[in-house]
Design a protein around this nucleic acid. Structure first.
Lengths: 202, 202
DNA sequence: CGGTGATGTGATCGCCGATCACATCAACCC
DNA sequence: GGGTTGATGTGATCGGCGATCACATCACCG
């Protein structure tokens, strides 16, 4: 019946991945609310009940989508940091806002999942890894005298809240997204005075 | 049929208000997602189709809920400001976070609606009024030399993003809500150094 | 007192999430 | 190689939801 010249291992091939792929596309198109199991199955060309063989319910499918998106998200941010040698924090914040603007629905999903209470083990691990690296950056900057020698976790949380709040305001259309970069610069300058270390004060 | 000793004007009384009341209760209990038109009608004791006489669709009902909640939200913040003579900004931020923690689902709803693009005229007016008052506070503080003489709108946006991001992190359980006040103090102190005016610098 | 329009009802449609018995096919064992 | 077994996909089905429609009911107005 099915033309399956390739050596697909099972009936369909690897249905779970296919489902997640289509679900991400659907998420990008119309938001998490629009990710219906039946529609995903339809796009994947399988029966409406097929996805339930791999995901116990819709929430589990969304969780898989979230994991995939979160991995992509954190990878991009870390890439931005490593590629921009100096000013890693501005690069990090800009990458965060840029990703949120490019994929607003993905941002909404990871927001609720990463910051939310019900974290998957994989999400939890990825999150700990990411925050750990950011804290390392902060400590390093403190040792170079570029940042105030305050509790690094406090600085991290505050910076995270700021970037996060700005991102949401951009995504929601509350701020002009086309001027994102300039506004980020100004806000960071404004608040940066409170966080800079001795070496950077005039 | 119905025992209506009170002089209720219509068949039911004023059904729209009743519906919104039950919808808000449902929102508080289980989030916006759980606000089903049928369930609201059930609680109000009317037929499933009755709400559609007053709200064209579910989105309109949710919009009415949002308006009611947004009014309550901004009233509480303004009350906090006027009751706390000095340090109005800390009072404002604390009131914001407190409300978000007390009613997380309401916060999620107004977030998407107030910051979001599709604002009801009533919401838009209330929002303009509110941000106007905050900006006045900022300008007044600048004239007293308590705040940096920077663009007041910039300061407002930055402060809003910070408080907003912190609120979301508390609501999502990412930060320990029981230590909200202390953490707000520390973050404001940390960033405040960048925003304070000449009169407050040591 | 009769009409008229606003309000509430019940039936109905299509979509969704979820479950079940059943079909199909790969893999494994003898 | 043939049979068994378990994983995977199907179709039917259930209940819930949003939305619409014809119909019933009731307040209000002339």
């Amino acid at each position: 019946m099915n033309s399956r010249p390739g050596g697909r291992p099972y009936h369909h091939g690897s249905l779970p991945e296919t489902l997640v792929t289509h679900a991400v596309a659907l998420l990008d198109e119309a938001g998490a609310e629009a990710v219906a199991v039946r529609e995903v199955a339809r796009r994947a060309g399988v029966a409406p009940s097929a996805p339930f063989r791999h995901f116990p319910d819709r929430a589990a499918l969304l969780a898989a989508v979230t994991e995939a998106v979160a991995v992509d998200f954190s990878e991009r941010q870390l890439a931005a940091v490593t590629s921009a040698g100096a000013l890693p924090f501005k690069a990090l914040g800009t990458a965060f806002v840029d990703y949120a603007l490019a994929h607003p629905h993905r941002f909404a999903l990871v927001r609720g999942a990463v910051f939310g209470g019900a974290r998957t083990p994989a999400l939890e691990a990825g999150h700990r890894d990411f925050t750990g690296r950011v804290t390392e950056l902060i400590v390093a900057a403190q040792e170079r005298g570029e940042l105030r020698r305050d509790d690094p976790e406090l600085i991290r949380v505050a910076a995270q809240a700021l970037v996060y709040g700005l991102s949401q305001m951009f995504v929601d259309g509350y701020l002009d997204a086309s001027r994102a970069e300039a506004l980020i610069d100004r806000v960071l300058d404004l608040f940066g005075l409170g966080v800079l270390g001795e070496a950077c004060r005039e």
